[in-house]
Design a protein around this nucleic acid. Structure first.
Length: 824
RNA sequence: GCCAGAGUGGCGAAAUUGGCAGACGCAGCGGACUUAAAAUCCGCAGACCCGGAAGGGUCGUAAGGGUUCGAUUCCCUUCUCUGGCACCA
């Protein structure tokens, strides 16, 4: 007789579960030294207004891991917060005549409701918003500490300016010359700005990667490129008028081939060298300096230069070489000056040919000797050094060492390392950010605000007119300040901090979000750190993920913590595409999670998003694909409810039928698979697939079950299925768990353990190959030895036919899997 | 140009350490149930060839080559795509 099956009313089930988790504070945690801890983190979202599918994908991954680890006995911290300061809020305020804070707060409220509808396991009591003064005051506190130590400094330098966002940007945020936020072409302007000395940590950022073995190689590689360490040498070329040109080179082995020197147009020596040069040269120089520096940086401008009229001496050869200015030499890298070796550098070669300068080869290519007059391209590979006095005959690598040592011994140079990384420009000429806590005093200059006077609060009454300029400048009560040193009148800094400052340390704040006398409680942080799993978008590989590694190192040097890296494991999830394109607001191809939840429920959405592709690859959103996981959930629901209320069926498996034994095998094999998939590889798609297979097996086997032991096996199967599925579809599983007759909430149940004995097969189907081609399959008892495998294989009729009349040369046997018979 | 990653059925994908390629799902086809449809349940399903069928054979993981008894997996060459960096000396 068939029971009436309760229908799956996901809306009601999900609402009830979520209410219960909230009311009972199910996912709230505190430090508990008696249990292993697990810190599971996702990158905090910017409150743009709506949760999109990309967020959902990110948070589904962490939610599964959180619930899984919790059931495995870990004390799991899974917090969430809001990266709440930033330009979009300010732009929205200008557009709608409101205040950025109101816009931000209402976005947070609606996004929070959306997250709750998805049933994520957050410790909501630890929620933070970076726009709270109780949070950003610690940005200011950190800034003051860095100011004291010279890590924060103010300097005039060429900086990236976004003409649309009306603010400067850090190097990391000028992606390929475009603003990371609005894609406008950035300009380079000379401005006095605040920087953080991230370059003090450039070696640490590279060397500490040794600790990041659980970070993906592609992220580390990107960061390595970004830091751009390159080992070379610095050499001083004396000029004829008693000056010195310092050049950086990675190819000191080619120095005897240097036929001229090149300076960047902005190089400080240029004016002096050009003193008295003909007017026409001065005009050319002015033109080179006026060239768009961004385009020059990107190599989009034709190589051009001019002769200064002066000469320098090659300190190795003593040769007199002309000094030129070249527009492709960058002031921001190395020393802003190079020795030009046209024979062995493509750019120098191109320049030399254009201006008829000498090409003088000093490295023998494997094809033989080179002729400077006739060569058509530079030879840039390594080789044997020639025409270089006592260094002749050395291989490039050896010559580099010897020549560097020579320069060092004679006091005109030595080994030197150059970096691509620039200091982090953190000032922003906008309102909705953390005020930089300094004042300008006519008497004392730049003075940090007293720690006791923090926070410097954003004045709520700033005018958002959209006329350009920082609204803070127009708030007189804010700008007018008192100098902490002399007590005299001072002007307050109106620049605010890059919002990447906020996100550089927020994960420490989660450990003690209400601590008032420090950025965080040291003991709490010591308990929870490091972050065990950090999941977020790959687009932060060199932004947030460099900044936060830097910040942790600074905190270590401030004595706040005693480790150097914040996250033990990083897992960048793939992006969500629709119709082959990245899903984004600007493309108008976004999917609203709310609509999907309404139609299928949160559990189906979660299952679908995790099943569709492995989490680290991009996934293609498909409207029809979601039907599969939904049908799966319904299938589980039906098979569970056929047996509702039968939780206490015992665990006596003494007299299992064949089907019963098969079912138990499948159950325990599935436990092993799902556990490994979540715990080790985070391959959640195959974990879901394994659960689908188990469900199919239950359907297939349940009809043939008889007797108490079989009933017990079925009970075990259903319980296990629900437990294993629960991190993916927590609401439906909570309901099914209760309907099966379990009184306790499922989130506190222990994760099932695979029983090795129960999962072992009695016999395995073994593939039999003859000369590497499959010719048959045989059933072989589980513990059969190699001889038995061979005998069974040879007895198989299809195999027999292939082997007959031939000599068996060799038999390769992989027990339980395969036999390969090699015959001649 | 340099660096990293990827390329598997109509589609999303799987294959844990070199050992049965295509699990699981979508779309499709067939059957059962139904007055009928939907839903559900049970099947079929890489391509090509032979065969009435049962079955058998050949090819097949971007392309070509190599190592191996055996290669989606390791090595070499080439192509394509994605991401990052790029006149960085």
């Amino acid at each position: 007789m068939i029971n009436e099956i309760k229908s799956y009313e996901f809306e009601e089930i999900e609402r009830r579960c979520q209410e219960r988790w909230r009311a009972e504070g199910t996912f709230e945690v505190s430090e508990d030294p008696t249990r292993p801890k697990f810190y599971c983190l996702e990158m905090l979202p910017y409150p743009s207004g709506d949760i999109h599918v990309g967020h959902v994908r990110n948070y589904c991954i962490t939610d599964v891991v959180t619930r899984f680890k919790r059931m495995r006995g870990f004390n799991v911290l899974h917090p969430i917060g809001w990266d709440a300061l930033g330009l979009p809020a300010e732009n929205a305020a200008i557009k709608h005549g409101t205040h950025p804070e109101g816009w931000t707060r209402s976005n947070i409220a609606s996004m929070k409701a959306q997250l709750q509808r998805l049933g994520f396991s957050y410790a909501w009591s630890r929620e933070i918003a970076t726009c709270d003064a109780s949070y950003y005051r610690w940005n200011q506190w950190f800034f003051l500490k860095m100011l004291e130590r010279g890590i924060a400094y103010r300097a005039n330098s060429p900086v990236n300016w976004c003409p649309s966002c009306l603010t400067v940007l850090a190097n990391e945020q000028a992606e390929g010359g475009l603003c990371w936020r609005c894609r406008s072409v950035i300009e380079i302007r000379d401005m006095e700005q605040w920087f953080l000395r991230i370059t003090d940590y450039q070696d640490a950022l590279l060397d500490d990667m040794e600790e990041l073995s659980a970070w993906p190689e592609r992220v580390l590689q990107q960061q390595r490129n970004w830091v751009g360490r390159s080992e070379g040498a610095e050499v001083s070329f004396p000029t004829e008028d008693g000056g010195t040109i310092r050049i950086f080179t990675t190819r000191i082995d080619t120095i005897y081939g240097a036929t001229f020197c090149l300076l960047a147009p902005e190089h400080p020596l240029v004016d002096q060298l050009m003193n008295g040069a003909p007017k026409e040269s001065a005009l050319t120089l002015a033109r080179l300096r006026g060239q768009d520096r961004r385009a020059r940086l990107a190599g989009q401008v034709e190589k051009e230069g001019l002769f200064t009229g002066r000469y320098a001496k090659n300190p190795f050869s003593g040769e007199r070489i002309p000094i030129w200015v070249g527009n492709f030499v960058l002031m921001g890298y190395g020393t802003g000056a190079i020795m030009a070796v046209p024979a062995h550098d493509e750019r120098d070669f191109e320049f030399a040919r254009k201006y008829g300068l000498r090409v003088h080869p000093v490295i023998q290519s494997p094809e033989g000797a080179l002729d400077g007059a006739t060569m058509t391209e530079a030879y840039t590979g390594p080789g044997v050094v020639t025409g270089s006095a006592e260094f002749d005959g050395l291989a490039s690598e050896i010559a580099v060492e010897k020549m560097s040592a020579h320069a060092s011994a004679h006091g005109f140079g030595g080994v030197k390392t150059a970096y691509r990384l620039k200091d982090w420009l953190i000032s922003r000429q906008r309102y909705w950010g953390t005020p930089i806590p300094v004042v300008y005093c006519d008497k004392d200059g730049v003075v940090g605000v007293r720690e006791a006077d923090l926070p410097v609060i954003l004045p709520p009454d700033a005018p958002f007119t959209g006329e350009g300029g920082n609204p803070l400048e127009k708030v007189e009560t804010f700008v007018r300040a008192t100098c902490p040193k002399c007590g005299g009148p001072a002007r307050r800094e109106t620049d605010t901090m890059d919002t990447f400052v906020d996100s550089s340390w927020y994960f420490y704040r989660y450990c003690s979000p209400t601590t008032e006398d420090a950025p965080f409680d040291k003991a709490a942080v010591r308990y929870w750190f490091p972050i065990d799993l950090y999941v977020g978008g790959i687009e932060h590989a060199i932004l947030h993920l460099v900044y936060s590694r830097f910040w942790t190192k600074v905190m270590r040097d401030l004595g706040l913590i005693d480790w150097s890296e914040p996250a033990a494991r990083l897992f960048p999830q793939g992006m969500v595409h629709k119709d082959g394109e990245v899903m984004s607001k600007s493309k108008g191809n976004t999917i609203a999670p709310d609509d999907v939840i309404k139609r299928y429920g949160a559990d189906t959405l979660r299952l679908y998003i995790l099943f569709a592709a492995p989490p680290e690859l991009s996934m293609e959103w498909s409207e029809t694909g979601i039907e599969g996981p939904h049908r799966f959930l319904l299938r589980v629901w039906r098979v569970v409810h056929k047996r509702a209320g039968t939780a206490s069926r015992g665990r006596d498996f003494a007299s299992l039928s064949e089907n019963g034994a098969a079912l138990r095998r499948r159950v325990h094999q599935t436990i092993a698979r799902v556990t490994a998939d979540i715990d080790e590889r985070i391959h959640l798609n195959t974990a879901v697939a394994a659960l689908m297979e188990l469900t199919n097996d239950i359907y297939r086997l349940e009809e043939g079950l008889t007797g108490d032991s079989d009933e017990a096996a079925l009970g075990e199967a259903l319980d296990t299925l629900v437990l294993l599925l629960s991190p993916f579809a927590p609401h439906a599983c909570e309901q099914m768990w209760s309907d099966l007759g379990h009184p306790k909430s499922l989130v506190d149940e222990a994760w099932p353990e695979a029983d090795q004995a129960a999962m072992r097969e009695d016999a395995n189907e073994v593939a039999v190959q003859v000369n590497g081609r499959i010719r048959g399959r045989v059933m072989v008892p589980a513990l059969a030895d190699e001889a038995a495998h061979k005998a069974l294989a040879l007895a198989e009729p299809g195999v027999k036919a292939q082997v007959e009349g031939k000599t068996l040369v060799k038999a390769i046997i992989v027990p339980g899997r395969l036999v390969n018979l090699v015959v001649k």
